[in-house]
Amino acid sequence: MPIRIQENDFDLSAEIAALRQGDPRVGAVVTFLGTVRDMNDGSQVKEMTLEHYPGMTEKALEEIITQAKARWDIYQALVIHRVGPLLPEDQIVLVAVTSAHRGEAFAACEFMMDYLKTAAPFWKKEDTPGGARWVDARVTDDAAMARWKKN
């Protein structure tokens, strides 16, 4: 299944191995792994909690993969996103793409991450020394997504 939303951690090597297994056409695998930082907007982050919109999240991630496959000549795409409580250094998100050559896989992976950042219904709440706070969306994420709409 190319989409997973889960509380549990995941094994990067095992996921990549499964994604390309049995497909000798694959010459490139590009992955993006997002991890929890211990600092955001000048505050220490002790823990964070990820909330999502069950039902819509799956639809949004499926749409991301559908669009990536329509735009680039890629074979497989995988998105794993964790929800629930997470600590600094924890893995949060994995996007992985296989293709014959690296160019298509790099572009598709970056597109999928930019799309996920602006369209998938996840929200981060950080626990800082000053109290809990919801993370604000970044204008730079919208700008990153807008690049893909121009071409």
Binding site: H52, H81, A120, P121, K124, D136, A137
Partner: peptide, 9 residues
């Protein structure tokens, strides 16, 4: 559904 701008990833 109504919600703030998303902040996943």
């Amino acid at each position: 559904a109504f919600f703030p701008p998303v902040t996943g990833g």
